[in-house]
Write a protein that binds this DNA or RNA. Sequence first.
RNA 1: UGCCUGGUGGUGUAAUGGUAGCACGAACGACUCUGACUCGUUCUGUCUAGGUUCGAAUCCUAGCCGGGCAGCCA
Length: 590
Amino acid sequence: MTAEPTPTRPSDFIRDLVAADLAAGRHAGIVTRFPPEPNGYLHLGHVRSICLNFGIALENNGRCNLRFDDTNPVKEDVEYVEAITADIRWLIAGWADHCLGLKPQGAQPALQTVNGRADHYLAPATPGAATVEPFFASDYFDRLYAYAVELIKRGKAYVCDLSPEDTEKYRGSPELPGRDSPFRQRSVEENLDLFARMQAGEFPDGARTLRSKIDMASPNMWLRDPLLYRIRHVAHHHAGDRWCIYPLYDYAHCLSDYLEGVTHSLCSLEFIPHRALYDWILGSLDLPRPLPHQHEFAKLLPTYTLLSKRNILRLVQEGIVGGWDDPRLPTIVGLRRRGVPAAALRRFAIETGITTYNGVTDIALFEHVLRDELNRAATRRLAVLRPIRLVLTNLPAGEIIECTATNNPQDESPTTRTIALTREVFIEADDFAEVPPPKFFRLKPGGEVRLKYACIIKCDEIVKDAAGAITEIRCTAQLDTRSGQPNADKKVKGTIHWVSATQCLDAEVRLYDRLFTVPEPGAEEDFLKVLNPKSLEVVTAKLESSLATATPADRFQFERLGYFALDKDTAPGARLTFNRTITLKDTWAK
RNA sequence: UGCCUGGUGGUGUAAUGGUAGCACGAACGACUCUGACUCGUUCUGUCUAGGUUCGAAUCCUAGCCGGGCAGCCA
């Protein structure tokens, strides 16, 4: 008997719970959902939720609906709908694309009969359907309205005329019970009439609300007759101008889940007190299908970054970064522009696990998976960020020595390319020291070093300008140490990268670093005071000429420096612009 | 003085009454035509006190400490 190869399928308390529900026959299949509000961009913190929801769908042959939780038109915009949809597609591409739940364009929940009772259900689009779109909570406004009428008829909801200020006063505080609204005992007929008139636009914003009738003395604040509907005389980005009353999150969310046949509604820890309300609303209606259930897990909070929309917005608005897709930002668009592969984001989310404990995750773990992904995938190239001229005095000008370079040593059968060694080359300024510190393996006066893929050179002379700055290093090339030559196996302690001074490209290279200098900038009194002044440095680098054909999809390792990707600022035919995604690990303490 | 949650190395997690393990990190070493990768060694942990039990991170009691809850936001 041979052992089964054990796939590293994640296990956590939510997956256990899903498995248990399946085993108990509570659901025919698994449906999860990812419910962003279209009022900002997705960021690193969302990745855990996306990977959890899509991962569970994937592992159970289910689906994960992309649903916009768009119940607050004053904060939302179609711009975000499109950006978020694109981010999700990119993030799950090649992994869980087939689990992405979408619906036929314009589809609404359909009436059906279940066990002799009327019911509504919105089926997903069949795979490969021509015109599809995400789900929208706002597509359920008619249904939600009908459910609200039903709640009123059952004596479980009422129209309240209290002002926002009075509503707050009547609610009490966590230590003190609230008081019943003076409008709590209105008759069903009056409630029905008033609710219809709210919908008809007879009252101004804030004049009335529809509230659930639960328990104003509940120790759970979210059970003190929470609001179901408020009046907002504004048009909606998706639903148009048909409505002037809009449902609140708690009311819309559980019912949206139900209408879509969601089985497991996964959200973050702060919604724990809302769970009782989620269950109350669904339980107060006569719904024939199995009810969805809410389960909570801890948000992802990486160090050295800021995740809240408000804080990211401030960085954008104050011009500290260049926009929502600035590569220093933890937004998905920013990360993507920086060159981070989606697979690295997924691994980070999966490897940090799922728990109910709110902690911080060392960003070093992200950097580790990022380097690991890139190490496997990136094509090696030579580039010099801070060039210094080096002359091989025993090579005639104009002579070109072809050297063979490996494209990726991590490949099983690595391919190679040819690079040109010429009399004049550039090396990294850091790789030469006139007065070397201890254990300096690189080039120094009288010292030897290998030019990677070429030969060993010896430093004979330093040329300086009037100010004493080094302008040129003069060396002798030991051509018999090239690969295939008799002395190819000669050992030297250091190997450095280089590019031909005559066969190279100029490029703008943007060197990014962490945006903040402290692990938890969000805990500072003012995070602007802990900004890393060196989060971006722009240099003009010298690249080997094969990089001329780089495309945005390529991932490169500039040897001994780090991983780089072409930036979208690169205009066709113009000078190349590269972003540094992450440096190579550097264990040589400087 | 309310209710809801939660506490395992520096960090993230596993162990579901039976050897406290894994990963990141850090330190040192080996290898190296990338001071990368890889490999090896080492480092640090069950919040506290009682109890149940042959046996407790796990169950019970009490305490300590942390997070959350009073938007017509989600």
